[in-house]
Amino acid sequence: MKNIRTIIKKEWAEVFKRRVVVLIMLLVPLLFTLIPLVMLGVMSNTGVGGDVSPEMLAQSGSMPGDMETVCVGLSGNDCMQVMMVIQFLLMFMMMPLLLPITIAAYSIVGEKTTRSLEPLLATPITTLELLVGKCLAAVIPAVGATWASFALFNIGLILVKVSPGVRAYILGPTWLLGILVLGPILAIIAVNFALYVSSRVSDPRMAEQVSGVLIFPFMGVILAQLAGVITINIKFMLLSIVVCALIAVGMFYLGTIIFDRENILTKWK
């Protein structure tokens, strides 16, 4: 455990001295928090959809999936906001996917270019400690930034006078499962994917860009939700957690193979 702590400390000391990493870590969460806040603020304060009841929305067929049950007791305006908020949940879920990629890419490719991995591998640290240390060093700030943004978002909702009904939905199980459980799992997948890509390339920006392909399956989920093919609800969240946890375990196993001392020293390019 002590070695893992040392690796995390080292990673943060190194990686957060890079301006590009700090900027991304600050700007992405800020942007992903402000955009939904502004939109919800505008909707709340202009009363868009105030003259439409949820029943009317349901009859018009514009309400996806099981939104009818979610909108019970809400005004038309609140119901429309809840429908929009689901897209914001997916935006929030993108943070733990995007942020660790940046950290992992700079941390691993950085070690490759300065050839600092060999002296590190020559210490008594185990491969697992090193891998876990590197993963956590990327996952913790990403998840931390996501959670902090979520907290900030909730405070902002009060400030922009979003109705208690919408706020209650955001603090409900679907969002909490997504932010608190699925978020860290997605971050683990992203780090291990970035690790795999970083072992093959020698430029951190390239590693970051290639690792960015992870966003495509995510975009698929967004499009499917918009098209009404899937509905983001508790059931979907639980299923996603199980599937993503299995993928994360597989990716971590792949990470232990990639992060084997011999592979790093003889096969990494």
């Binding site: 080292k10 190194e14 991995l117 002296p119 590190l120 020559a122 008594p124």
Partner: peptide, 30 residues
């Protein structure tokens, strides 16, 4: 690995960290 020291072909230092920080990391790992 605990009982041997190695000077690798290239120094492989953490360039953004000070000499003291570089050594401290390894002091902790050893």
């Amino acid at each position: 690995r605990r009982n041997v020291g190695i000077l690798t072909e290239s120094p492989g230092l953490y360039e953004r960290l000070s000499a003291e920080q570089n050594l401290r990391i390894f002091a902790e790992l050893y």
